[in-house]
C-alpha cells in the first residue's frame, strides 16, 4: 500500500492555514483598530472638514458645501503660487540634498573619512531643533548684522550688504539653503549605510578589470546604491513638502507671498484666517501628493523585498 503524503496533508494543511490566517487576523485587529483611530480617523475627518464651511469661531456649526473649497482654491492665485513654490522647493531640495549627501557619504566611506568625529560634526545640523535652526539662519541672513553680509563685504565678494530675505527669488532660495543644510546629514547617513553594504568583492573585480575611480563609481557604486537612492529621493520629497519652520520664523511666507508653500498656506488659512474648511482642503491636496509619494516609496521597497525572498 502506498500513501500519497500530499493527499493526506492537503485538507489538514488547508484548514491549518485558514485557522492560522484567522488567528493572525484576530491578533492584528487591535493594532489595526488603533491605527484606524490615530491615522484613518483624522484623515477622514480632514477630508470631511474640507467639504464644510467651518471657521474657528463657529467650528461646531460647519455647513456642508461640497467641493466649493476646492473650487475656491483652484481659482486662487496664492494657491497656484504656493503650489509652484512647493514643487520648486521639493525638486531643488531633493536634487541638491541627494547629490551633496552622496558626495559626503563617499567621503565618509573613504578610509581617510572614517574618523567618528566627522560623523558627529555632520550630525549637528540635523540634531538642532527646527525652530532653533530657523532662528540661527534668521541671524545669518540679517541684512544689518548677519554674518553672511559681514563675511561677504569683508572679503569683497559682496560690494554691498544684501537683503537676503527681501527679494522674492532670493528669499525662497535663501530658505532652501538653510533647509538643505539641515537635511543633508540624515540622507548622508542613509547613503553611507548603503555604501557599506556594497560587497567589497565587486570593487576588487572592477579593479581587476582595469576600471578607474569614475568607472567604478558609475558601474559599481551607483547601481548598487540604486534602491537606497530611490528611498532617499522619495523620503526627502515627502519631508520637503512638509517644510514649515523656516518659512514661519524667517519670512512668514513673504515678501509678497514669494516663500508661501502649501504647508504654510494650510496653516495660514486655517489658524490665521480661521477658515478651517479651506485650510483642510489645502492640507488634503498636500496629503494626496504625499500619499502618491508614499506609494512610490512602497513600490521602491517591493523589488528589494522580493529579491531578498528569492535569495533566501
Amino acid at each position: 500500500m502506498t500513501i500519497d503524503p500530499g493527499a493526506v496533508a492537503r485538507p489538514t494543511g488547508r484548514s491549518y492555514l485558514a485557522r492560522r490566517r484567522r488567528t493572525g487576523t484576530l491578533l492584528v485587529l487591535p493594532a489595526l483598530a488603533v491605527l484606524a483611530l490615530i491615522l484613518a480617523l483624522p484623515i477622514a475627518a480632514s477630508l470631511a472638514l474640507s467639504l464644510m464651511d467651518a471657521d474657528t469661531a463657529d467650528f461646531r456649526f460647519g455647513v456642508f458645501v461640497g467641493l466649493d473649497n476646492y473650487r475656491t482654491l483652484f481659482a486662487d492665485p496664492v494657491f497656484a503660487l504656493a503650489l509652484r513654490n512647493s514643487i520648486y522647493w521639493m525638486v531643488v531640495e531633493v536634487a541638491v540634498v541627494v547629490v551633496v549627501a552622496l558626495w559626503f557619504a563617499l567621503l565618509l566611506n573613504h578610509p581617510m573619512g572614517r574618523w567618528s568625529v566627522f560623523r558627529i560634526i555632520l550630525l549637528v545640523p540635523w540634531a538642532l531643533a527646527p525652530v532653533a535652526n530657523a532662528v540661527l539662519w534668521k541671524w545669518i541672513y540679517n541684512s544689518s548684522y548677519g554674518i553672511l553680509n559681514f563675511l561677504g563685504t569683508a572679503t569683497g565678494v559682496l560690494p554691498d550688504p544684501v537683503v537676503w530675505l527681501g527679494d522674492p527669488g532670493l528669499a525662497l532660495n535663501a530658505l532652501l539653503v538653510a533647509e538643505i543644510w539641515k537635511e543633508i546629514p540624515f540622507i548622508t547617513l542613509l547613503l553611507l549605510a548603503g555604501l557599506q553594504n556594497v560587497p567589497r568583492i565587486l570593487y576588487r573585480a572592477s579593479r581587476l578589470d582595469g576600471a578607474g575611480p569614475w568607472q567604478t563609481f558609475r558601474f559599481v557604486t551607483l547601481p548598487q546604491l540604486r534602491t537606497t537612492i530611490l528611498i532617499c529621493i522619495v523620503l526627502q520629497s515627502i519631508w520637503a513638502l512638509k517644510s514649515f519652520d523656516l518659512v514661519y520664523v524667517l519670512t512668514r511666507g513673504g515678501p509678497a507671498n514669494a516663500t508661501t508653500m502649501l504647508n504654510f498656506l494650510a496653516y495660514r488659512v486655517s489658524f490665521q484666517f480661521g477658515n478651517l474648511g479651506l485650510g483642510a482642503a489645502v492640507a488634503d491636496i498636500l496629503f494626496f501628493v504625499m500619499f502618491l509619494l508614499a506609494l512610490a516609496y512602497v513600490r521602491v521597497f517591493r523589488p528589494a523585498r522580493a529579491a531578498e525572498r528569492g535569495v533566501a
Binding site: S143, Y145, R252
Partner: peptide, 22 residues
C-alpha cells in the same frame, strides 16, 4: 528707508536697528 525693512517680520527686528544707531 533701511533696505532690510522689507524683510523685518516684527517690531523687534526694527527696534534693534534703531537702538543700534543704524
Amino acid at each position: 528707508t533701511e533696505p532690510g525693512s522689507i524683510s523685518y517680520v516684527g517690531i523687534a527686528d526694527t527696534t534693534n536697528v534703531f537702538t543700534a544707531g543704524k
